[in-house]
Amino acid sequence: MWENSINVEQICEIRSKSIVYLGVGAISKINDIASNLKSRNITKIIAVTGKKAYRSTGAWNHVVKALEQSGIDYTIYDGVTPNPTTHQVDEATKMAIEFGARAVISIGGGSPIDAAKSVAILINYPENTAQELYEYSFTPTSAVPLIAINLTHGTGTEIDRFAVVSIPEKEFKPYIAYDFIYPEYSIDDPGLMLNLPEDQTLYVTIDALNHVIEACTSKAASPYSIMLAKETARLIAKYLPIVKENPKDLKARYFLTYASMIAGVSFDNGLLHFTHALEHPLSAIKPDLAHGLGLSLIVPAVVRQIYSASCQTLADVLSPIIPDLKGTTDESDKVFVDLRNWIEKMGITPGLKNAGYSEKDIEHLTNLAFDTPGLASLLSLAPVEASRTVVSDIYTRSL
């Protein structure tokens, strides 16, 4: 296969609306990025991150050295949790404004990067709050420069225009999408991901798979999003088992990182629908639920629900995982069982009940899917009608 000809230690520059540096050792590019910021008279930045990974991976040492060599002062907000909240964004924004930061560097997975995108906007809008941003109470038109140092191979947020932050008081987990929050530069260095725990490795990788399952079947799907979906699924099917067997395999981590990145491009173009719209309520009411785990628990029922409308596309895209699909409408139950079995084989126990949900939660979850700001737009992109009955059925079958 063509992957065998790739030198994973050669740092590639991949251009979209973001410039992504991909490769083992890509963290060294932070030196050039810091120099670029300084050349634009940006002398103060805020780093937005979680509690531990930014240090334990060694990424922070590179960032500090690069900033100091370029004469850029910095402060750090390290309070971002999985499923970040508006309160965390407001705290980080207050710190940034008081410090005088004119750019944001995020270090982490999807949660820190999404929080950082929000901070990058709100620095320019000090009179507004994160809750107002995520309830669409105002329409921003700018953000300060954002740099993303990605530490997981699943989110795709290092190369897209989306961000997700929860409003805990309302059990809302909305999203925003603006062209001006594409990171200017992103670093995808698989060398920083070698110590990613097995459960997180599974969750983030299946997050990437979910991105393309939705992006190739939405009403906005295109040949481009479908092509990227096919390659994402192939790479995940090939390299996830290898990483499970040997977490230190740099080549396998490299191609899972690449798969995640192109999955981000796929859904940046083809957009999302059921799985993400229905997962957001799950982790809104249980913030400790990992986003990727929530997706893993409901995607088989989603695929069952949409299979009749997208059977040929899904049979093709999922062929590395379920090789005997024919692409006929009578395979809905088969794809539900086979995809669920594959996810379980990878190491995730199926069933929302195992994550603490019950039949009593179905109505509330269904209401949140329709009431949370922004999720209606995702539901409208599903290839079948997103009625309350359909949404409730997906949750129920996922129990």
Rank of each mutant, 00 (worst) to 15 (best):
I167M: 07
A163L: 06
Y185K: 03
T85A: 07
L202E: 04
V80E: 02
N83P: 15
A92M: 06
H153A: 11
R161N: 15
N128H: 09
E127G: 08
I76S: 07
L194S: 08
I113L: 01
E132P: 11
G156A: 10
L151S: 15
M95D: 13
Q200E: 07
D207G: 07
L67S: 12
D90G: 09
I97N: 08
D179S: 13
I206R: 01
Y175V: 10
I181Q: 01
Y182F: 02
S70R: 05
Q88C: 06
N83E: 14
I149Y: 07
K65I: 12
L194C: 08
R161M: 06
N128C: 13
V204G: 02
A130Q: 15
Y178R: 03
D78R: 04
D179C: 09
P197T: 07
H87G: 13
A130Y: 15
S166G: 09
S186Y: 02
G79I: 03
S106D: 01
I105K: 00
T93L: 03
L67H: 04
D114F: 00
Q200R: 05
K170C: 13
A120E: 00
M193I: 11
T81S: 08
E198A: 11
I123T: 06
T155C: 09
Y175L: 14
L209K: 02
I76W: 05
A116R: 01
F99Y: 15
F172G: 08
E127N: 12
E198C: 02
Y136M: 14
P168V: 11
A148H: 00
V104S: 00
F162C: 12
I181F: 01
D114E: 05
P145C: 04
I113P: 03
E91W: 12
P140R: 08
D160S: 13
L196C: 07
L133F: 13
A143C: 02
R161K: 08
A101Q: 05
P174I: 12
L133C: 06
F172T: 13
A130I: 10
A115L: 04
D114N: 08
Q69L: 09
L196E: 04
P190H: 07
L202W: 02
A143T: 00
E127H: 12
E68A: 14
A66S: 10
D188W: 12
A115E: 07
K173T: 15
I123A: 11
P112Y: 02
D73M: 07
E127F: 13
A130C: 09
S118M: 01
E135A: 09
I181S: 00
A101L: 13
S106E: 01
E68V: 13
F172S: 06
